[in-house]
Design a binder for these strands. Sequence first.
DNA 1: CGAAGTCTGTCTACGATGTAGACAGACGCT
DNA 2: AGCGTCTGTCTACATCGTAGACAGACTTCG
Lengths: 217, 217
Amino acid sequence: MTADPRLPGRLPEPPTRPTLTREYLAVAALALIDAHGLRKFSMRKLGTAVGFDPMAVYRYYVDQEDLFDGVAEALFTEIDVDTLPWDGPWQELARQYCLRLRDILLRHPHAVQVFATRPVRSPASIDTGVKMLAKLHADGILPADALRMVRCLREFTIGHALAIAVTKLGAERRSRKPRPDSPDYNLLAEAADATALDDHFEIGLTAILRGFRHSAD
Amino acid sequence: MTADPRLPGRLPEPPTRPTLTREYLAVAALALIDAHGLRKFSMRKLGTAVGFDPMAVYRYYVDQEDLFDGVAEALFTEIDVDTLPWDGPWQELARQYCLRLRDILLRHPHAVQVFATRPVRSPASIDTGVKMLAKLHADGILPADALRMVRCLREFTIGHALAIAVTKLGAERRSRKPRPDSPDYNLLAEAADATALDDHFEIGLTAILRGFRHSAD
DNA sequence: CGAAGTCTGTCTACGATGTAGACAGACGCT
DNA sequence: AGCGTCTGTCTACATCGTAGACAGACTTCG
């Protein structure tokens, strides 16, 4: 006769160790990248950071590429597309979409590369694309034209975020090159002083949208 | 008495081994990246590929970052800015600049990332920027506004090239996700079939330029 | 002519990385 | 009770970026 293996009475909470998930790992990876930069990120560090074996990540992602796809999806999720102004005019919808995407990317400057270097094909992303196209279609824009417009906006937004992130992050690393002696050089210096780094994003957005409107023939 | 160490008569050309150069290495690195992809590139492979010691590159570049800066400069050089239509209207100049940049980047799809993820600050690049600003200034555009416009065009161009390169390169890698059952999904499919991947670049370019023109107040 | 210093390429060493694969305990189903 | 699967652990290996010592050739200067 053996003793009852169950301990008597209530025990304090055992240290909970949540089981791993693709999504949890993706979010953790994003946090790690935010904290220490993409350069320093590694699969093993991720495993260790979430309190598991360094190799544990490979149970959920076959590849680093695969993981980064997950990180990009996590970033996309932050857009929270459901709260976009789907009922207003499509121009405003598109503008808000771009603004949110930019804000999110600039909040994760180290991860912008990850987002920018892969086509996000998550169901959520495709769904959003489809809804956006339907919206433009309802305004009489041909799907093909709508797709082109959306692509332009998207590429501008990502290109912008990438440029800003990269410039800010690289600012301290690189040594100031000696300024050339061109007589016009002060034009550049003056202009650079007069404009914030990302002054122009909304201007560009407006220009694209206006340009599209005028090209509707 | 020792024999004359010089050999008699004309010898066939000794195998020439050019001495290394920062630029030569940068161009060789670009070629390697083109050939096998950024993922497979390494400092040691570069050294070996040019016929020297794997570690030889570090005599000329302190870092991989440093090397990639050089690769970006090499890409910029391909634009051949001197043959741009500097005498025409600035809109045409800007358009041609963007078109050339896009063409070059799409010719080096594996290296687009390298170019897109660092601000190119070579003298040649700064010089071009200055000349461009001067050109717009001659048309009565304030330097600050000109800088904003140029940045918008640049970011759109790079964002576009990156998107195209990444999509094309990743096309075979990723498995087609099952198409969602949304009733509007065929809108997307139809639109995607009707548009080439990079159909929209010139349209976007035109839209931006037109949008700027109309915002000149 | 010769010595000293510099330039350039070679070589070794180290810790970290991505990834493959074997292994083991826990859990669910029969 | 037994068995297969799921999940996390652990070991192994080739490769990588980078630091640093070393050596031959070339330059400079007395």
